[in-house]
Simulated scan of single mutants.
Amino acid sequence: MLPMIFDAQIGLNVTLTPENEPPPLPSELFRVGQAVALLGDDINVDRREGEPLFFYRGHPGRITDPNGMHILTEWVGFEESPWSFAFGFTAFHDGTCRGLTAITEEEYAIRAKAIAEGKRPTTD
């Protein structure tokens, strides 16, 4: 059975499937402090001691600079890493950021705890 998540954009429970991925972050949520998660595939990273081995699909973070040209996010476990201060996402002409999706504060806390425990942030 596939996991259920609360979709912050539409306010409904949705099942994650390849056809039904979380929606990309809309421009109205480009704001400092917005809880987000990474869309796409896991990324194997060069890391410093104590950092996660992967930047996971569903990895939680918070927007620190909502500039549409280069949206910066502080990622859980990578707070002092270039992943959090030099790697950004670009907004597309349709007003979305396709590399990020919004998550609830509750989901952020669950995913951050999983990362701190050395686990994947989601089960998908």
Rank of each mutant, 00 (worst) to 15 (best):
L2I: 04
L2H: 13
P3F: 00
F6P: 06
D7W: 02
D7E: 07
D7T: 03
A8E: 11
Q9T: 04
Q9Y: 08
G11W: 03
V14C: 09
L16K: 01
T17S: 14
T17N: 10
T17K: 12
E19P: 05
N20V: 05
P22H: 08
P24D: 06
P24S: 15
P24H: 09
P24V: 02
P26N: 08
S27G: 11
E28W: 08
E28V: 08
L29D: 07
V32C: 13
G33E: 13
G33F: 10
G33I: 07
Q34T: 15
A37W: 02
A37M: 15
L39Y: 02
L39E: 07
G40N: 10
D42W: 10
D42M: 12
D42K: 06
I43N: 03
D46R: 15
D46P: 01
R47W: 01
G50R: 03
L53T: 06
F55C: 01
Y56H: 15
Y56T: 07
Y56F: 15
G58F: 08
H59P: 01
H59L: 13
P60G: 09
G61M: 09
T64Q: 08
P66A: 11
N67S: 15
N67M: 01
G68A: 12
G68K: 15
G68E: 14
M69F: 02
M69T: 15
H70P: 11
I71A: 06
I71F: 07
E74K: 10
E74S: 07
G77V: 11
E79W: 03
S81I: 04
S81T: 03
P82E: 13
P82L: 07
W83M: 14
W83Y: 14
F85T: 09
F87M: 11
F87E: 06
F87I: 11
G88P: 06
F89S: 01
T90P: 00
A91H: 00
F92D: 09
H93Y: 14
D94S: 10
D94M: 12
D94Q: 09
G95A: 05
T96P: 04
T101A: 10
A102I: 06
A102E: 08
I103Q: 09
I103T: 04
T104H: 12
E105T: 07
E107L: 02
E107N: 02
Y108L: 13
A109L: 13
I110P: 00
R111E: 02
A112P: 12
A112C: 11
K113D: 12
I115M: 08
I115Q: 06
E117S: 13
E117I: 00
K119G: 01
K119D: 09
P121W: 00
T122Y: 06
D124I: 06
